[in-house]
Design a protein around this nucleic acid. Sequence first.
DNA 1: TATGAATGAGAATTCATTCAT
DNA 2: TATGAATGAATTCTCATTCAT
Lengths: 216, 216, 216, 216
Amino acid sequence: MSKSTPPVPEERLRDADRSQATILIAARDEFSEHGLGGARMDRIAERAGLNKRLIYYYFEDKERLFQAVLEQTYHHIREEEDKLNLVHLKPEVALRRLVEFTWQYYLDHPEFLTLLNSANLHKARHLAQSDRARELNSPLVHMLQDIIERGQADGSFRGGVDPVQLYVSIAGLSYFYLSNNHTLSAIFGRDLMAPKALNERLSHMCDVILGYVLRS
Amino acid sequence: MSKSTPPVPEERLRDADRSQATILIAARDEFSEHGLGGARMDRIAERAGLNKRLIYYYFEDKERLFQAVLEQTYHHIREEEDKLNLVHLKPEVALRRLVEFTWQYYLDHPEFLTLLNSANLHKARHLAQSDRARELNSPLVHMLQDIIERGQADGSFRGGVDPVQLYVSIAGLSYFYLSNNHTLSAIFGRDLMAPKALNERLSHMCDVILGYVLRS
Amino acid sequence: MSKSTPPVPEERLRDADRSQATILIAARDEFSEHGLGGARMDRIAERAGLNKRLIYYYFEDKERLFQAVLEQTYHHIREEEDKLNLVHLKPEVALRRLVEFTWQYYLDHPEFLTLLNSANLHKARHLAQSDRARELNSPLVHMLQDIIERGQADGSFRGGVDPVQLYVSIAGLSYFYLSNNHTLSAIFGRDLMAPKALNERLSHMCDVILGYVLRS
Amino acid sequence: MSKSTPPVPEERLRDADRSQATILIAARDEFSEHGLGGARMDRIAERAGLNKRLIYYYFEDKERLFQAVLEQTYHHIREEEDKLNLVHLKPEVALRRLVEFTWQYYLDHPEFLTLLNSANLHKARHLAQSDRARELNSPLVHMLQDIIERGQADGSFRGGVDPVQLYVSIAGLSYFYLSNNHTLSAIFGRDLMAPKALNERLSHMCDVILGYVLRS
DNA sequence: TATGAATGAGAATTCATTCAT
DNA sequence: TATGAATGAATTCTCATTCAT
């Protein structure tokens, strides 16, 4: 680091951005664990290690805090989705890659699932009120469209595949298994989160999706 | 029963049963609309048109009331599933029928979806504590097993199809679409609950499931 | 007490009317001492010796409690005014009696003055929302009209005296002295509430009012 | 001041004075609209367009700020009263002029009324703690004394008129009408602030005051 | 069986005030 | 002089639950 570089304050005590980010993470965890109704502002403050008043200072109230969490959550998954580079892959490989990504993202971010459930319990009014609506649009649908078109062009994919339906199906196959894993585990009396079970599920989903699109 | 036995107050009993049933319905609606954390005992009493104290008289507390609602909910879907008679149908037809049933049941009982979400948010501990655990087991898995076996026997189905995986996939394809319909509608900017959209979804799901199991 | 007389419960523990009345008195005192903004729901509960939650149970919120206090306050002064029987008195005597009554009521009910001040600070919106609006109308204006007419008929009073203006003036002469007694005492450096000062004030007000209406 | 004295930062000083004045005005408006208990330091800062911290820098705390506002308020009305030059007027004319001035000042400065009400709600303790106590004394009492003496001397006024009582009566006639205008308007169902109503009130008040003092 | 009255613990939000720069 | 960040102590209001009949 050269002399002219301004000192980077490793840990600034009074940093609005950092405080806001800390609150958002704490809130995300609390909301995802307890839902909007069950979340406690006190616990969020405690998790963040910051004064409860500060939450209101930056986020107005519980509802808007939840909205901010949702926006951040969508922002994050969209960023990850953007990183996927599937255009140069063979259609079949690209599709499999996309199923794997979806599965892995949900696995790595269980809070995403519960937050979405909460958002839907409240009829997505927090998204409706969001100004960052653009960020909601997933690039995956366009990627899918491209993959489908290339697959049909090279004769490997069947015709009449709707990218939105396919997107919802890919997501749904992972989502239901992971989001409802507790009730499913109770019903089936086995641990759905065991490594072996997870591998089997991924394998099955790829079979389902590819079995559907591939021209036999 | 001897003559000296005092007459059973049938009216009373019926009233008691009716009150409990009324409370359960009110509670189911409240829990499904607001989740466990967001539900209000006051509102449940109001919905039921009964005194709040009575709820505690019959159901002890909020947690146990939620548990009773879950049990009742599972009981109901299992009853409906039992009515399905697929053994005499051709495997492909039977499978299609099962996809349709699942879709229609979720459509007709949106409270089922939100209640399951709530149950999972709480890691299904309400089911774990339930004495009526047997009722959790869906007969559909066995039906599926039978269908798959018959399909493989007559050569129409591929091999290596796991009935549990297939069950989860069939449910997931419907579940995700309907449970997350608010956020999906917001993202895609179109009404996923429009009749045409619903028909298209059902058609797509049948294609996916059958495309997967049918030997090409 | 005969056997047939139903027992009068001297002190019932659970008595909705009594609790509401107790809360209203406590609230009246708190609001009159601290104003709407300075009043504390906690203190009202403490003054009433009842649970804070009960206040919300009966009166919804602080605003509506204040409104109920205002209604009760007006109700009370109107009742007292109704008891005044001036029709049979000579006009001059009747008018003097009315000045004395106003003065004495304000002296005996200092909370009336501060509550009216609070009501006006909030632009009387609590009265505007009141359903008991009829009770607002003071019978004094009609009494005054009668007195004025009789006085003019017997030639003792001057002409052109408006009863509303006269009512406001009679009230204003007492009100300002008593309501602003603290600042006035500070300014003049003397105790305006001393018995002698009070007597002198009453005497002066009668002189002013009668000096105005009496034909000289 | 010697040449070596560093230059007085006039701009700075003026800014400081201006900031204080701005805060005082903002505080006066806030206190007069909401009372001491209902006033918010945040809103005062916002109204002033200055940082909240600055209010504390200049005025210590809310109580002292309120006191400063009261002092400034009294200071202002005393200044205006000082400008009245009644000594050269005929007693009757001077008295009428004084009634008009009081009425007009209250009309032009409605905040004066509500601030006085707040001061009295708090038993004038803010005035008792004021160092600028001299400013509390109204010159009007002395003016009145002079007018009364001249009126009695020239035979136009009756005897036994106490200047303090008369001062309080003149103020009270205006004060009650204007301070309680919201509740009175609600009771009488008419707009007491309409120009015609205001003119009639002023006319009535002059009649009352002069009817009292003038030897008939 | 059924109910209106009552409550303690808690939860969201507010507020005057202070910190650090 | 001026300011944005931060806080502890309230304060209003809520909620599940119990009391007394």
